[in-house]
């Protein structure tokens, strides 16, 4: 009985509401249109943003680079030597740890022309860190600085200088600090002036911006990633615990 009354009351209450209340199709239509506009606008904006970053600066290829997206190669100039691919972002703390552990060994093997090293200088961390960093686009600017140093054959020196006194993640570098790194890399006088002009003009920026896409296509999702003769090298899995193990492992891998 009570249930019956309740039912009637509800039916009566609901019925007129149907007539006066908002029409579900209209509300649904508005929500759908707003949602579609938001998604389309967001995708277009992101696409524009991407185009802006990948078309800024010049489209020159730095010394040691043969194609857009490709690595900067420091070749041993001999056949049969192991080829080491290194995917790094200059702002990445794990890259800094790797560099302090085996960086000097890599440099030594390069100097002795025992290996060919291909540096893939990524700058994807800007995407995460620009939200907190006081020095925006630090990975991109540092990468441009390294490419400018390559003009004078000082890529490796500049690369190593960046990992010296490596800043805390999210802090990055100011342009002045990146110029100091050029001096640390041994650029002086006319070479330094040329580096500064290059750094200001960013002739290699489109190359720098092309590396991340190629790395993602190569399946590299994190830095540092090492590949030895094209095969992914996981240091822990390979039982490499120190710089000596590293050297032995690399040199044993004849190409």
């Amino acid at each position: 009985m009570a249930d019956n009354l309740d039912r009637k009351a509800k039916a009566q209450a609901a019925a007129p509401r149907q007539g006066r209340g908002p029409n579900k199709i209209v509300v649904g239509g508005i929500v759908a249109i707003v949602a579609i506009i938001a998604v389309v606008a967001g995708v277009i904006l992101a696409d524009q943003q991407k185009k802006t970053t990948t078309t800024a600066g010049g489209s020159d290829l730095p010394a040691g680079v043969t194609q857009m997206g490709g690595p900067l190669e420091i070749a041993a100039g001999k056949s049969g030597v192991p080829v080491l691919d290194i995917y790094e972002d200059f702002q990445c703390p794990a890259c800094s740890s790797l560099e302090s552990a085996v960086g000097p060994t890599i440099t030594d093997m390069i100097t002795k022309k025992q290996i060919t090293v291909r540096y893939h200088v990524m700058s994807f961390l800007d995407g995460n860190l620009d939200q907190i960093s006081p020095n925006k686009q630090s990975s991109n600017r540092a990468a441009n600085g390294a490419m400018c140093a390559a003009e004078d054959g000082k890529f490796l020196e500049y690369h190593n200088a960046l990992f010296q006194n490596h800043p805390q993640e999210g802090k990055g570098w100011t342009d002045a600090e990146l110029t100091t790194k050029a001096k640390d890399a041994g650029l002086k006088g006319e070479s330094l002036t040329k580096w500064e002009q290059c750094f200001a003009g960013k002739p290699y920026n489109q190359y720098v911006a092309s590396i991340d896409d190629q790395a993602a296509k190569d399946g590299v999702t994190a830095t540092p990633t090492l590949k030895l003769n094209g095969e992914k090298l996981d240091l822990a899995a390979a039982g490499i615990n120190n710089a000596n193990d590293f050297r032995t492992h690399i040199l044993a891998a004849k190409n």
Partner: peptide, 20 residues
């Protein structure tokens, strides 16, 4: 994720399930 749509795109690319 919305503050960095480029990173969001990277995350989806990383799964290597969809065309790039």
């Amino acid at each position: 994720k919305i503050g960095s749509l480029q990173s969001s795109a990277r995350s989806v690319q990383a799964y290597q399930l969809l065309p790039f």
